[in-house]
Simulated assay, not measured.
Amino acid sequence: MINPQWLQTFTVLSEMKNFTRTAERLGITQAAVSQQMRLLEQQFGHLLARRGREMALTPAGVALLQYQREVENAENRLQMRLTEAEATCGDVGIVSPGSIGLRLYPLLLELQQQHAGLVLRHRFAPDPEVLEVVLSNKYELGLTSTKPDDPRLSASRFTEEPLELVIPADKTVDSWQDLMQLGFIDHPDGRAMATRLLSRCFPGNPGISSLPITGFSNQVSLLLEPVARGLGFTVLPHFARISFAKQPAIKVVETPVAVVDTLWLIHRQEWPLSSRAEKVVAYLRQALCGSVNTTEPT
């Protein structure tokens, strides 16, 4: 039987590719890392190939790492089987981008109020981080705006989210000149989103760079505050807009062409969702059903 502590050290070392950083991650000494590796190699042969500062797994090392993953997957499947009946008890973690997260988090709190045994964790993160934390088993569920091609992940359509042109409630926009007069409230994805939507709604326009910038925020929950105060317009996803508290102070411009993104629900491919996670997904799907009317993905 393999010592689980040695196996954990080897797994971290295969990721960090550095004895010092591995020791720091595990909270042990570098000497302890070296000793555990020597003991493993006595049992299984040469596991690491070193050339200068570079480090790579030998075929035996690859086989041992695969064994560790199979053990981890088996433990997760066992845990899910043991708790299958507990659909309203236990922990469920979900990670998502900011816009859809603003809509999901209140819904998750409502579900937790209905079932006190549930512990629902939500984290805001960009797409690359969503993939990372789901793959590392830190969160069971994730939402991304692009479908991942990683074979370790299962992906299914969750919902659609159109981009919206949002202006102050007392303004109108009929032309590019109207946008010029309002000014653009920018955000980290603002220029890309505005280009995608405005290039279709105002063909032949001189481009987003021609618009005056009248504000910026990297907090999606606060982005519409300057719009509500009449300081400019912005382009952002639907769920961010409907989560804003001061709806009477803003207005969505009806556009002749829809620009719609698909949001993908992801989880690890190797094992089924827990009954708790399935309940959360079903609840969220039902709550979001009908909230977006357009079906023209881009």
Rank of each mutant, 00 (worst) to 15 (best):
L108S: 02
L109A: 14
L109V: 12
E110L: 06
Q112A: 15
Q113H: 07
Q113M: 06
Q113A: 11
A116G: 10
G117A: 02
L118S: 05
V119G: 03
V119P: 00
L120P: 09
H122F: 13
H122M: 14
R123D: 03
F124L: 15
F124E: 13
F124H: 13
P126D: 09
V130N: 04
V130M: 01
V130A: 01
V130H: 01
L135A: 12
L135S: 10
L135P: 00
S136L: 09
S136A: 14
N137L: 07
K138L: 13
Y139K: 03
Y139T: 01
E140W: 06
E140V: 04
G142E: 06
L143Y: 10
L143A: 04
L143F: 10
T144N: 04
S145W: 14
T146R: 15
T146N: 11
K147D: 02
D149Y: 09
D150C: 10
D150I: 08
R152V: 08
R152E: 15
A155M: 13
A155P: 12
S156Q: 15
R157C: 12
T159R: 05
E160V: 15
E160C: 14
E160S: 14
E161A: 07
P162E: 12
L163T: 10
E164N: 13
L165W: 04
I167E: 02
P168A: 00
P168N: 02
D170N: 14
D170C: 00
K171I: 00
K171L: 00
S175W: 02
W176R: 07
W176L: 11
D178P: 11
L179H: 05
L179I: 08
L179M: 07
L182N: 01
I185M: 01
I185H: 00
D186K: 03
H187Y: 11
H187W: 11
P188Y: 05
P188F: 07
D189W: 12
G190S: 04
G190N: 04
R191Y: 03
A192F: 05
A192C: 00
M193Y: 14
A194D: 05
A194M: 08
A194H: 04
T195G: 11
L197K: 11
L198A: 11
L198E: 08
S199T: 15
S199G: 09
R200A: 14
R200H: 14
R200D: 12
C201S: 15
C201M: 11
F202W: 10
F202Q: 10
F202A: 10
P203W: 09
G204W: 08
G204C: 10
G204D: 06
G204R: 08
G207N: 06
G207D: 06
S209C: 00
S209W: 05
S210G: 06
L211Q: 07
L211I: 12
P212F: 03
P212T: 07
I213F: 04
T214K: 12
T214E: 04
T214V: 05
G215A: 11
G215N: 08
F216V: 03
F216N: 06
S217K: 00
N218F: 05
Q219L: 00
Q219D: 02
L224P: 07
E225C: 00
V227P: 09
A228E: 08
A228V: 12
G230R: 13
G230Q: 11
G230M: 12
G230P: 14
L231C: 14
L231I: 06
G232T: 08
G232Q: 07
G232S: 06
F233C: 10
V235N: 13
V235R: 13
